[in-house]
């Protein structure tokens, strides 16, 4: 099954671009952690910056800042917002 949202995952979003979560493919504890941190389908996420070594990435979600590894962000399907 192709991920929804045209195949775009959160790790592909570029700085200052915003998107909405359409699906979460993480399993188990990671999935639960994402929900607790406010990453649920429908939530708006804005990419802020990448760490100096290229990973993880800092995002803004629900008014606070969150760092996520690219591997984990790759499990979150998103729909980029029109600029």
């Amino acid at each position: 099954m192709l991920p929804r949202g045209g195949g775009v995952t959160l790790d592909r979003i570029i700085p200052e671009q915003a998107c909405r979560i359409v699906g979460i493919r993480a399993r188990g504890r990671s999935r639960r952690r994402m929900f607790a941190m406010g990453l649920v389908p429908g939530a708006r996420v804005e990419m802020l910056r990448t760490a100096p070594l290229g990973d993880p990435v800092e995002y803004r979600v629900r008014g606070y800042c969150l760092a996520i590894r690219k591997a984990d962000a790759g499990l979150i399907d998103v729909m980029p917002e029109e600029q």
């Binding site: 990453l39 993880p56 969150l66």
Partner: peptide, 10 residues
Amino acid sequence: SAAFIMELPP
């Protein structure tokens, strides 16, 4: 490795 999802508090 546990998923790395960490708050960066103000």
